Each structure stands twice: as C-alpha cells, then as structure tokens.
Computed example of a mutant assay.
Amino acid sequence: YEHIGFPIVEVSADGQFTVNKVEGSGGLISELSVAEQLLYEIGDPRAYVLPDVICDFSQVKLQQQGKHAVRLHGAKGLPPTDQYKVSATYPDGFRCTASCLLAGIDAVAKAERVSQALINKTSELFSQRGWAPYTDVDIELLGSEATYGAHARRADCREVVVKLAVRHPSKQALVLFAREIAQAATGMAPGLTGIVGGRPTVYPLIRLFSFLVDKSRCSVAIEYQGQRYAVELPASAPLLTPAVPIEPAKPEGRADASVPLVKLAVARSGDKGNHSNIGVIARHPDYLPWIAEALTPEVIVDWMDHVLDPIHGRVERWYLPGSHSLNFLLENALGGGGIASLRIDPQGKAFAQQLLEIPIAVPQHIADQLT
C-alpha cells in the first residue's frame, strides 16, 4: 500500500483493453480486483448510461494475462439516449455534527443516554423559543458496530465515539445545539472526553437533485477563440433494456453446509446519489449458482434493512454472466446520500463488507474445499 500504483489501461481500436501497472509498484491486478472496479457504483449493467454511449457490461469477460495484467472484452455499445442527465444542487437547511469519546464501564449505555439527553434538552429549548423541531437526528456510537444494525455483535464495549449529527431549517438553532455539547462533558456521564475539533461547526446542507431533459430542448455549441460552433448530435434513441433479465443457472445438488459469503466471493460497494450498489463476484464460476440462490433481493432487503428507507427502500438484482457476478442496487439506502446524509457512511462504502458475512448454503464438498 505504501507504494501502490495506478492502473494503466491499453485500449485497442475494437474496444478490448488490458489493465496492468508499472512494474515494481504496489497493488494487485487480478481478475477479481478488476471485476470489482467493473461493478463499482453502477446500476443496471446492461445499460450503463454515458453521455455518448450506452454500455452493456453484462457479457464482459476477464482473463489474466500475466502476474499483473488482465484483458477485458465483450462490452457492447448502444446509441446514446435521447435525453441529458442534469445534476442540480439546492440548499436544504443546515447541519451540525458533534463527535466525542466516551470511555469506561457501560460506555454504550452511557453514550446512548447522553446523546438522547442532548437531543431532548435542545428540543425543549427550541420549543421554548418557538423554533421548529429538528428535521433529522442521527446518533451513531462508533465502536459498538452501529453501522451493522441488527447484525451487530458488540460485546460490553468500554469505549465508543459518539457521533451526533442533526439537521434543522435554522442556523441559529444549530448554533445553540453546538453550544450545549461542551457542558455534557462536565455535567453528564463520566468518561466523556475528546470532543473532536472543539465546538462543532454549523454548515449549510446541500442536496443533489438529478433529472432528465430531452436533447431536443437543448442547443449544443462549442466556443473557441471567440467563435461559436454549432455541434450536431449523434443519432440517439429511447433507452430500451430487456424486459426479462437473464438469471444464473440453478444449483445442482444438496446444500447441507454453510459458509460466509466472503469464502465464495469478493464484493465492493459505493454510491449512486441516494442509492448504493453492491457488486458480488464469485471466486469460482461453480460458486455462483449457490450465491444467487441465497442472495435474492428479498434476502438483501432483510440483511440490509437497517440502511434502507422504510418507505421507499427497495433492492434490484442483475446477473453478469461474463464476470460470474451479481449486482445489487439498494435504492434510497444512504439517508440522502453524499453531503446531504448525516450518517458516518453516507456513500455505502462499508455495505459490501457487511454483506460478505451473510451465510450461504452450499454442498459439504464445497465447504470442505474452503476450510
């Protein structure tokens, strides 16, 4: 890691390419590491929308060609859509995050009590002044496996970092909140210390709003050295994807053992606005039917329920035959996403690590191979 190298991509005219790196630099170029990047932060792999092309990743094959070289081929290009994607931002109140250490006996219980007391007290002060209540409150006790939700296996932690994030329409209200943090260290539970950065700062909360606009409503031109040149757009078409996606083969045999997913696959996750994706790549093609049998969208909803919006959260799954992988899109799973989210993981970077612990039913002979 100390001298990790950036990948080098050598592209041929037919769209095939090889990924390698400078000899002697750190890192690993393998089929699995490159496949992780292939599935990173995408939605439907059959229709990855770019400004000038729609790319179909589903049939891309990866072949190791040397210690640190992987060849990719099989991508397909479709005409661009007849719409542009527009990303706009707008202000939506203010946010403030306070972090501090709470250590000692019953640290988790004390941290929960202190956090709730701060919210209750400041909420009363808001009410007395005729101010609106908090728009959103997010309390996470880092070190207690807070990001794992119901799957946390925390013991009796003796130290946690309290991360208390709040949102409010008024900056004045959050300035009051920030002022109340310091007195908790002297007036509430013992062991509260290490307020990160001193008194917390109030920031504007900026939200992203993305939408589509017909290209026919836009005129495209390039300005160069004082001259304006009209640009003729390439042919485009409405985005069409297969109505029925391809599904992996059903597993053959009896599943009489269980192993964690990490034994069978690698995975990587990231954000798409307020959505997150988790790409799961089988370590061997024979493992994929068992992975697919276990990881249905319904199972993912249950396993990741603690991050999904209770009303608008849903999960969609796609199969990529070329790379022996699955891609899951967790819609509305990031609490607003990016800088709008109050969570410690606003981009879903740790979601794949949580999923890798899920048990997968497999035949005993596969389990024996992995021990």
Rank of each mutant, 00 (worst) to 15 (best):
A132M: 11
A109E: 15
P363D: 04
A352S: 04
L62Q: 00
P133R: 12
K215V: 00
R154Q: 14
T193H: 14
G24P: 04
V231K: 10
F211T: 14
S219L: 12
P285Y: 01
V162T: 05
D368A: 14
L320M: 13
L72D: 03
K263Q: 10
S127Q: 15
K76A: 13
T97A: 11
S127M: 13
F126V: 05
S216T: 12
A155K: 14
K85E: 13
W290R: 00
I246N: 12
I278L: 03
T371H: 12
L261G: 00
I278P: 01
Y84H: 10
A146S: 15
G322K: 01
I139A: 04
P260Q: 00
A111V: 03
R217Q: 14
V266A: 06
L125C: 08
I278F: 04
I105D: 15
R283Q: 07
L141S: 09
D302W: 09
L39C: 02
G27Q: 04
P248F: 10
G26P: 05
E10S: 12
L101W: 13
V259Y: 06
A182F: 09
Q347I: 12
A111Q: 05
D214N: 13
E293G: 03
P359W: 07
K121M: 13
V9D: 01
R317P: 00
V244N: 10
P200I: 11
I105N: 14
R71A: 10
I366D: 00
H306R: 02
R343D: 12
A109S: 14
L101M: 14
R343C: 05
V315T: 03
R268F: 02
D106G: 04
D214K: 14
L78W: 03
S258A: 10
L342I: 05
E112P: 01
A146C: 09
P45D: 02
P45W: 03
D214Y: 05
V11P: 01
A150P: 08
T147H: 14
D82E: 07
Q227T: 10
L308D: 03
E180K: 11
S99T: 14
D256R: 01
G337P: 04
D14L: 03
Q347D: 12
P242N: 03
A152I: 01
S269L: 05
L174P: 02
E316P: 01
N20P: 00
L320F: 02
K349S: 01
E223N: 10
C55K: 13
P260G: 00
F94I: 07
A185Q: 15
F17A: 02
L176S: 09
G337Q: 06
S30K: 06
A292Y: 06
S144P: 03
I42F: 00
A257T: 02
H168N: 09
R199P: 07
G270N: 04
